[in-house]
């Protein structure tokens, strides 16, 4: 039971981080990003490749992962961000898929990523490091859990301060009425890019933690379903709410993993997996139909009316 709960809280932390990034995009800026998983993947792969093939130490490779995710945010954002919402949705999900295909079999890239076979062996240093800093009494899961949740807290405070600042007010202004903000002389595209890049960086860091959790990297882990899960979490908690990603993620993963307690005689493992996906879909629909602002969100602060 205890390892189960730890597992749920760890996964919830990683996805809370992802949802914080997405919340910056959608909740606060009104950018519909359906390719979030690409930033998650770029963070994980940057760290993994640097660490295993170029022997870059952990901390620099963590930072490089965030920088790479930021760059990816800029690369995706530069062309995409001027598009209207529904096209932005299509472009971002498509870029996410292109990125996964390239990781899998891109000429020149698949040598680095080892294609579908994936990368292993980057997490040992990370877990041994806990001995050096006197946290040896924690299990590997507990240690990662601690780091992830401290990060969630730090990112949460940072986002709170940023959104309260004049910069954040401009983002919210863009979400409400882009033209009005432009009329005030603000460079809307630049603000959108900054929001996109910062959210991507947060997702990249989440990718590093996720890679440490599962201990290996494979392209087909990074399917669009991950993006949809993060959307569900963000909307469940409430978009444009600071505590929404955390609350949404804990509830989501408690329900999601709760199906493991259904005895195998009633529902087989494969059936439970399908039912979970049906549940996610039904949850997305139910939130959008009955309570688009989520549990903690404020109806006034929704980017839905564009």
């Amino acid at each position: 039971m205890i390892p189960y709960i730890e597992g749920v809280i760890l996964t919830a932390g990683i996805f809370a981080l992802l949802a914080q990034g997405l919340n910056l995009h959608w909740g606060f800026t009104g950018l519909i990003n359906l390719g979030h998983v690409a930033f998650f993947a770029v963070g994980a792969y940057t760290m993994g490749i640097l660490n295993t093939q170029f022997e870059v130490p952990l901390l620099p490779s963590f930072l490089a992962a965030m920088v790479a995710a930021t760059l990816m945010g800029v690369i995706v954002g530069l062309p995409a961000i001027r598009l209207r919402t529904d096209y932005l949705a299509i472009v971002t999900i498509t870029i996410g898929e292109i990125f996964r295909l390239i990781l899998k079999s891109g000429p020149g890239v698949s040598e680095l990523t080892r294609g579908p076979r994936g990368i292993r062996g980057f997490s040992n240093d990370f877990y041994f490091f806990r001995m050096d800093i006197g946290l040896g009494f924690l299990s590997p899961t507990q240690y990662l859990l601690l780091i992830v949740w401290v990060t969630v807290a730090v990112v949460g405070v940072l986002l709170y301060l940023l959104i309260k600042s004049p910069w954040g007010r401009v983002l919210k202004g863009i979400r409400e009425d882009e033209d009005a903000v432009r009329a005030l002389g603000k460079n809307v595209t630049a603000y959108k890019m900054q929001s996109f890049a910062l959210g991507a960086a947060i997702a990249g860091l989440a990718g590093v933690f996720f890679a440490m959790d599962i201990g290996s990297l494979a392209p087909d882990t990074y399917l669009p379903i991950i993006t949809f899960q993060v959307w569900t979490i963000m909307m469940l908690g409430g978009s444009a709410s600071h505590s929404g990603p955390v609350v949404g993620s804990i509830i989501f993963w408690a329900i999601f993993n709760g199906t493991l307690f259904i005895p195998r005689e009633i529902i087989s493992g494969a059936e439970a997996a399908y039912l979970r996906q049906i549940g996610i879909g039904a949850l997305i629909m139910a939130i959008m139909i009955f309570r688009p602002q989520g549990i903690l969100g404020n109806r006034e602060e929704m980017a839905l009316d564009k």
Binding site: I284, M285, A286
Partner: peptide, 9 residues
């Protein structure tokens, strides 16, 4: 977004 949920269902 509803259509994404419907797709999964």
């Amino acid at each position: 977004i509803i259509s994404i949920g419907l797709a999964l269902v």
